[in-house]
């Protein structure tokens, strides 16, 4: 007699814990052909606000970790994700309708991307920052600093590689994140949250909400304690425009959605967009 499998009802990832949605709501996640996979929590606006609180609480600690330490933690994320390769491959295959070997390549690329960004932790300031040769006797140095809390609408289609490609560049520089997953393909993100929770990443640095960005997005876009918003996963132009308008309430930095090939080597744009240049002056003299 075959064993009855344990079906899962996944939860959110907020402040390092895995709460259910305060709304009690769930939704059914199916594979690309409509077969039931699992239940996932359907995050509410209250969950989004709780996630912002968790992200704010985590910000100062994460931003002031040494870059070496942030890099090590990001590398550890790659290690733990590599250990979950089979699970992630199954989930990417069923979510994106890929063959197992094609899905495996996606997982490999995603893990490699964590490794790539891990290496940036202690180098981005050297590339983006600089000494400024001012025409008076002053020490003058510009350095990139994290923008703060970044709300991310993760790509709807690329459920793991796209997810990684929008998340890793934001946290590597010291930001904290509230991320809304792909609505129909959330399971790789759920598994990634389990990876993050076991990778020494401090709780609250990444908060992952499964649900509908059209429902949660407006609350994040207008939230006055969110400093920036990445609209990559908002495919509806009218919604993206509304969210950008709401984001102006506190002059959020906005990354607009545009078609993106996540298999291509990334540049610095995503790290640059969510950092601020700070310039410090001091007189030189005896």
């Amino acid at each position: 007699m075959s064993r009855v499998d344990v079906r899962k009802t996944y939860k959110l990832y907020v402040g390092g814990a895995f709460p259910r949605s305060e709304s009690g709501r769930t939704f059914e996640v199916t594979d690309s052909s409509g077969v039931f996979l699992a239940n996932a929590a359907r995050a509410s606006r209250k969950d989004a606000r709780d996630a912002v609180v968790a992200a704010r609480k985590a910000f100062a600690g994460w931003a002031t970790r040494t870059p070496y330490n942030r890099g090590q933690i990001m590398y550890r994320i790659a290690e733990v994700a590599e250990g979950r390769r089979d699970q992630l491959t199954d989930e990417v295959a069923s979510a994106e309708g890929l063959s197992r070997s094609a899905a495996g390549k996606v997982v490999d690329a995603a893990v490699d991307r964590w490794v790539w960004y891990a290496g940036w932790a202690d180098k981005f300031a050297q590339v983006a920052g600089n000494a400024n040769a001012v025409s008076a006797p002053y020490f003058n140095l510009s350095s990139p600093e994290p923008t703060g809390i970044v709300a991310i609408a993760a790509p709807q289609d690329s459920s793991l590689l796209g997810l990684t490609s929008v998340l890793a560049p934001v946290i590597v520089t010291g930001n904290t994140v509230v991320l809304v997953t792909s609505a129909s393909r959330p399971l790789p993100a759920v598994t990634l949250s389990e990876v993050l929770a076991t990778s020494d990443l401090p709780g609250g640095v990444v908060n992952i909400l499964t649900g509908d960005v059209a429902e949660i997005g407006p609350w994040l876009a207008s939230h006055l304690d969110v400093n920036a918003i990445d609209l990559t996963g908002v495919s509806d132009h009218a919604l993206a425009t509304d969210l950008e308008i709401a984001a102006a309430d506190n002059v959020k930095r906005v990354l607009r959605p545009e078609p993106e090939d996540f298999t291509a080597a990334p540049g610095l744009r995503r790290m640059s967009t969510f950092t601020e240049t700070k310039t410090v002056w001091h007189p030189i003299g005896l």
Binding site: A136, S142, V280, W281
Partner: peptide, 22 residues
């Protein structure tokens, strides 16, 4: 975005200027 230490209101074309937050 700009911190002046033991000075204030210094500007130079080589020195980036601009803000955080609002």
């Amino acid at each position: 975005g700009v911190v002046w230490a033991n000075t204030f209101n210094k500007f130079d074309p080589a020195s980036p200027f601009g803000g955080y937050k609002e």
